[in-house]
Write a protein that binds this DNA or RNA. Structure first.
Length: 628
RNA sequence: GUCCACGUAGCUCAACGGAUAGAGCGUCGGCCUCCGAAGCCGAAGGUUGCAGGUUCGAGUCCUGCCGUGGACGCCA
């Protein structure tokens, strides 16, 4: 019987010399401490002190306590037991309170690079073969997409790409807000007014959405206040009328929703037109953005509409939900707030849809991990929904694997006043205007470089410069969304968002383009790729070694990204890598080195750095132009 | 009121419980007759909100307080 649910064994999650060293240390710890210490994490880390070591093991301090030993003595003993390390490392040194400092031999560095090149850049395939669901985008029909959806798409796409890179099947789920009373209200309003839904624009829909909301918003509190404070009869009459009108509007929308639910073909057709219009605008933006999301990823709220009754019934049957004030609620021991899953009028709520969706994703999509990329304000909601699903046992795949339910709650995008971002006229900033601005700035920047005669982009037609500018501008936007801790709000600032220096997307692209440029120049000078591809690596200069150590970490960084779901770690790594390459570039001439025999090894090192950068940029969803 | 997140250099942000808390922007000073200066090298800049605690070791974990933001039963 085969089980696809093999848990990730620690020893196979990272490739390269680090995992080999870990294995040796693990055995050495066992030898030093005996029974009960068979499988201890050696706590191997890249050293933060390149003057002292390449790697350090911090295990001795932690183990000394439980073994009642002196930490330095224990470290010494572990080192004595770890004789197998000497094939890879210089003799280890014990420093400070008990750090074990390790330095790789140059031959081990070269061998590790060989292995990395031959073995998919050190990427370790995920042992869990279950699909991952990434819930992203989730635009609402008939509403403008805004920067929040942008973040969700960018982050969700990067996470999806990371899983795909490690060989894991991914379902990108666009949980479209395409169902329920708000949609019915828009449709109700537009049909009353005889709007032509085939030619309507998203701007019109967005206006209608807000007008319908305002129209249906009863204000009984305002009416009560007007009476209490003896407002003029005019004002009271006005409010009474408004309240009645609102009720009428909502009732009309409810009737429409029921008819739509029952399959009225006329309504169904109009409803689809609303969705089509919204999706046209969405995919227009998505195409510029380079996010992998299409109509095939749509599985909106309406998809679950026929599953809601069964969902609620299952809760009732299991005795997990109870009736309170006519509504059906799920209660939790550790918090007062209950989760409402059916209204007292029998209607369902968005929580009901989320429950149905999780059940579908574990039971039918067979997902062992479901990642919601939804803004942080919904944290409490997802906590409740996840816990409710766990109570029902819906967090298990059909083959019995426990599924992780994770909410990646990202921060809000704020305006300069630290309030949610609006334009001067008070409207949401549209996604399209933001992207157009980014492309325009990227284009201007690229054109400026191309004006310099020695630039590799000199003389390119403006059409090409525009395309490169698009890649650069979009990379700047996406990288800004990915490169810092996701939970934090951030203040929207176009100038900073489109920055091209320092820790930015364009800086990474620039490093990549410079490598491409040097390889192209080598070809111009008659150096065949086949020559350097077979040259042995020679890691001698400090800058070469620093670059090598970073390259060797790539696989572990990718594994870590799918574990931690934190794209900014990959960003930070690629930034470090670009820095290391730039330093190498500065101090180690590649095409005209002091010693000509170093040329081919350096070209090969450049090419490996290029491949890792391109690969990493690809996982982040950033383009990697060869000239810019 | 209850619950949750976040407070790190002037600004924007990093830092798997590990050694001397790091980058970018801005400021100051160097480096293009030499593979792309969107770059490199260097300087200045810190009581990690405050107070306790756990630990061999705390920006990181725990408790309390202060500050900011968010969520809190029939909207999504």
């Amino acid at each position: 019987m085969s089980s696809p649910m093999t848990p990730e064994a620690p020893s196979t999650t990272s490739a390269g010399p680090a995992s080999a060293i870990e294995a040796v240390l693990r055995r050495a710890i066992h030898a030093a401490l005996g029974r009960g210490f068979e499988d201890v994490d050696p706590m191997l880390r890249p050293s933060q002190r390149p003057d002292l070591a390449d790697f350090q093991s911090n295990c001795a301090m932690a183990l000394a306590k439980q073994a009642a030993r002196n930490p330095r003595d224990l470290a010494q003993q572990i080192v004595r037991e770890a004789t197998d390390l000497l094939a890879l490392c210089e003799p280890p040194e014990v420093a400070g309170p008990g750090f074990i400092n390790l330095r790789l031999r140059p031959s081990a560095l070269a061998a590790a690079l060989d292995a990395m090149e031959a073995g998919d850049l050190g990427i370790v395939r995920d042992l869990d073969t279950h699909p991952v669901v990434i819930d992203l985008c989730a635009v609402n029909v008939a509403k403008q997409m805004h920067v929040g959806h942008l973040r969700s798409c960018i982050i969700g796409d990067a996470l999806a790409r990371a899983y795909e890179r490690r060989g894991r099947p991914v379902f990108r789920e666009n949980h479209l807000g395409d169902w329920g009373l708000p949609i019915a209200m828009v449709l109700h309003r537009l049909r009353r007014r005889g709007a032509d839904l085939r030619t309507i624009s998203l701007e019109d829909l967005d206006r209608a959405y807000r007008a319908a909301q305002a129209e249906g918003r009863a204000d009984p509190a305002g009416l009560e206040a007007a009476r209490r404070f003896r407002a003029g009869p005019h004002r009271i009459a006005e409010l009474e009328e408004q309240n009645e009108g609102a009720q009428e509007t909502v009732d009309g929308a409810r009737r429409l929703l029921v008819a739509l639910q029952q399959g009225d073909p006329d309504l169904e057709r109009d409803w689809r037109l609303l969705i089509d219009c919204t999706l046209r605008a969405l995919f227009d933006a998505i195409r510029i953005l380079g996010v992998r999301l299409g109509p095939e990823h749509n599985r909106g709220e309406s998809f679950y509409r026929d599953r809601l009754a069964a969902t609620v019934a299952a809760f009732e049957q299991a005795g997990v939900a109870e009736v309170h004030d006519g509504a059906l609620v799920v209660r939790f021991d550790d918090r007062e707030r209950p989760l409402l899953i059916r209204k007292s009028d029998g209607g369902f709520l968005y929580a009901t849809t989320d429950l149905a969706a999780i059940r579908f994703r574990t039971h039918e999509l067979n997902a062992s991990r479901i990642v919601y990329v939804v803004d942080a304000r919904q944290k409490d909601h997802f906590r409740d929904v996840f816990d409710a699903c766990r109570r029902m046992g819906w967090d298990r795949t059909p083959d019995g694997v426990q599924a992780d339910l994770v909410h990646i709650g990202f921060g809000s995008v704020l305006g300069p006043d630290r309030r949610p971002l609006k334009t001067r006229s008070g409207e949401n900033v549209t996604l399209r205007s933001l992207l157009d601005e980014a492309c325009a700035r990227g284009h201007a920047e690229v054109r400026q470089r191309a004006a310099q005669e020695k630039s590799p982009t000199a003389g390119l037609p403006d059409e090409d410069l525009r395309e490169i500018g698009r890649m650069v501008g979009i990379a700047a936007i996406k990288y800004a969304d990915l490169s810092s801790d996701l939970v934090r709000d951030y203040v929207f600032d176009m100038d900073r968002l489109i920055a091209f220096e320092g820790n930015t997307g364009p800086y990474l692209q620039y490093a990549h383009a410079r490598i491409c440029s040097i390889l192209a120049r080598a070809a111009e000078e008659g150096i065949e790729a086949s020559a350097w591809r077979t040259a042995p690596f020679r890691i001698e200069e400090p800058a070469e070694k620093a670059l090598t150590l970073l390259l060797l970490r790539y696989g572990a960084v990718m594994t870590d990204m799918t574990r931690s779901l934190e794209p900014h770690r990959l960003c930070g790594y690629l930034f470090d890598l670009s820095n290391a390459y730039s330093a190498f570039y500065q101090s180690c001439p590649v095409l005209r080195p002091d010693d000509p025999s170093r040329r081919l090894p350096r070209l090969r090192l450049c090419d490996l750095a290029r491949r890792v950068l391109a690969d990493g940029l690809g996982v982040l969803g950033l383009a990697a132009p060869t000239r810019m």
